[in-house]
């Protein structure tokens, strides 16, 4: 029997191969089950609800602020990893590495500026995101837990921003962290201890630099990614984006 090798034949053979089926585990027939499986079995699609209301895609529902935060996180991660190739978290080298980025590394200035401005934008966007959620009343049940997660994410964003501030090891960084950790000291009872823990000593020195580096590049980003994943998953579980208050919905009277 002679088989004609048309594209459809190739597709048939490929989509039933062992390799294909180990990656794409559902069938190709356009059935409701297969469509659900396609969503459930793909992490990225799974983060999103199966169905999205057309209205929820309108700009005024989210202003895309959550999405922009996510995009900025991605940019920060990518540029941050590249910067780590050029940076030594040690006192004699840290500032020199900034100079190397500025003067000798190809596109080094762009890389560093991208990281810096994205970080600034992230803080701003995350704040706006919180305001949007607040004014849409999206913190109310069933979304109350996601609000809590959001507040944790805001805190993580601020901590990332703050720990990253020390890394250039210039005067601005040094004194900003000196002032910041002195503010920590004002915490009742535990102030001195927290400050000691944060700095790895009593002054902003080599220990503080390495601590801030590990926090900035490992601990805080890991936490951020984990909680952000949970946050986005909760959006879906809580019935999608809330959007502006409907005509008949009661308005927020927070101070009542």
């Amino acid at each position: 029997m002679r088989i004609e090798l048309s594209p459809s034949v190739w597709w048939y053979a490929l989509s039933r191969s062992e390799l294909w089926r180990s990656i794409i585990r559902h069938g190709v027939t356009d059935s409701s089950r297969n469509r659900s499986l396609a969503i459930f079995q793909n992490f990225f699609l799974h983060m999103h609800p199966v169905k999205v209301r057309r209205k929820a895609l309108e700009v005024r529902h989210t202003y895309y602020l959550g999405g922009i935060s996510l995009a900025l996180t991605a940019i920060l991660a990518a540029s941050g990893i590249l910067l780590m190739f050029y940076y030594h978290p040690s006192v004699p080298e840290a500032y020199m590495d900034m100079k190397e980025l500025q003067f000798t590394v190809d596109i080094g200035t762009f890389l560093r500026n991208m990281h810096r401005w994205s970080a600034h934008a992230m803080v701003l966007v995350v704040f706006l995101h919180m305001l949007r959620v607040f004014y849409h009343g999206a913190f109310r049940p069933p979304r109350q837990f996601n609000w809590v997660l959001g507040v944790v994410l805001l805190t993580l964003t601020l901590l990332l921003s703050y720990t990253g501030y020390l890394l250039p090891w210039d005067q601005l960084a040094y004194w900003a962290v000196t002032v910041g950790t002195n503010m920590v000291r004002a915490t009742p009872v535990l102030g001195e201890r927290i400050r000691f823990l944060l700095l790895g000593g009593n002054i902003v020195g080599a220990n503080a630099l390495i601590r801030f580096y590990v926090l900035h590049c490992v601990a805080l980003p890991l936490l951020l990614v984990l909680i952000a994943a949970l946050h986005i998953w909760r959006v879906r579980k809580d019935g999608g984006v809330k959007g502006p208050l409907a005509e008949d919905e009661e308005t927020l009277e927070v101070y009542r």
Binding site: M96, K99, E100, Q102
Partner: peptide
Amino acid sequence: GLATTAAEAHGLTRH
């Protein structure tokens, strides 16, 4: 010394 542009190398920039 680290700089590779005239203005920065000559140290006439701020700080």
